[in-house]
């Protein structure tokens, strides 16, 4: 087995709110091998974005990482000083966000923003940085990179801005790219182009990726392995084929059933609503919405267990012969 690039163990991130301490990420573990893409899928409040921010230690008060280890290339990121962390961010681990317009600096040209990263992290000369920036813009399939260098973010279309963000993230050739809902705000035809681009750059840069999305179909398109999160916990974790074809957790199954595919297929919604982290149901957080709910589910929270080789699920009754989510 290859040494994992990133190994997250028992990560817990809490937020202090007026209603008490809320666990946005609860005892989360996963690994990412070099060059591998892990997808994390979940709905609002599932903790997927908090996970991304935790990895870069960008959780701001009133939030904090209260437990766990984040081993990146064997070193625990949680033990690094803030100064060392700044070097990790952008250089070894880069992140791309959904809100491109707020993530790009509106008063600086795209070229300057890429060059800044290169000069700070790699101490390049202006000339070197410029050449490298144009090269990176070409790598993200930006039409006419030289011209885009001189553009301000507001002069670019939505898809080009997202490419510019990816270019900034890739500037220092990071080993891990965290992509948090990066295609959510895009139109489908533009999304398709960005997903194609991600395929290409993963290969060219031998990039490992943590790809976060609420859309299982996008995840299926991009990722090698997938973790499904619900209410701050990982409920299923395996490779993409098992997840889509022989999934164990009722939530995963129900998510797949709840997306319209063809007109003939009946749409089976998941009953109830996504729980608030401040008032989680007892036992298994999913039990009020679950079709396989048994009395024990209300009492005891299931742990993530490896039921089959490399197939993890947090459920007391994983993949029984029950067809799929019956309406509650």
């Amino acid at each position: 087995m290859v040494q994992p690039l990133l190994e997250v163990k028992d990560l817990t991130t809490e937020f202090v709110s007026p209603r008490g301490i809320v666990k946005a990420v609860d005892n989360l573990s996963f690994t990412i091998a070099p060059g591998e893409t892990l997808g994390i899928v979940g709905e609002s409040g599932s903790g997927k974005s908090a996970t991304a921010l935790s990895l870069l230690r960008l959780i701001a008060p009133p939030g904090r990482i209260s437990a766990g280890t984040l081993l990146f290339e064997g070193e625990d990121l949680l033990r690094k000083s803030e100064r060392e962390m700044r070097d990790v961010r952008g250089k070894s681990i880069a992140m791309v966000f959904q809100q491109v317009m707020t993530a790009l600096d509106p008063v600086h040209r795209v070229g300057e923003q890429i060059m800044d990263v290169l000069r700070v992290h790699l101490r390049m000369s202006p000339q070197q940085a410029r050449e490298r920036a144009i090269e990176i813009l070409g790598a993200v399939r930006m039409p006419s990179p030289e011209q885009v260098m001189r553009r301000f973010p507001h002069e670019l279309s939505g898809g080009m801005r997202q490419r510019a963000m990816i270019a900034i993230a890739l500037a220092c050739r990071p080993k891990l790219l965290i992509a948090d809902e990066i295609t959510t705000a895009l139109d489908v035809t533009v999304q398709a182009q960005i997903l194609d681009l991600l395929d290409d750059i993963r290969r060219e840069f031998n990039l490992a990726m943590l790809f976060i999305s609420h859309d299982l179909a996008v995840i299926a398109r991009v990722c090698d392995r997938i973790g499904v999160m619900y209410a701050g916990r990982m409920v299923e974790y395996t490779d993409k084929y098992r997840l889509f074809e022989t999934n164990m957790h009722p939530y995963t199954n129900a998510l797949l059933e709840a997306v319209p595919r063809r007109k003939e297929d009946e749409l089976r919604p998941i009953a109830g609503s996504v729980p608030e982290l401040s008032s989680l149901p007892s036992g298994c957080s999913f039990h009020p919405r679950c079709s396989r709910m048994e009395p024990s589910c209300t009492r005891e929270a299931p742990q993530l267990r490896e039921w089959e080789p490399d197939h993890w699920a947090a459920c007391h009754f994983p993949r029984q012969s029950v067809p799929v989510a019956q309406p509650a």
């Binding site: 709905e43 998510l255 709840a258 749409l267 919604p269 609503s273 919405r289």
Partner: peptide, 11 residues
């Protein structure tokens, strides 16, 4: 809306 809720409203 969240994915799991979209189907409810659509139905």
């Amino acid at each position: 809306l969240d994915v799991s809720i979209q189907a409810q409203i659509l139905n």
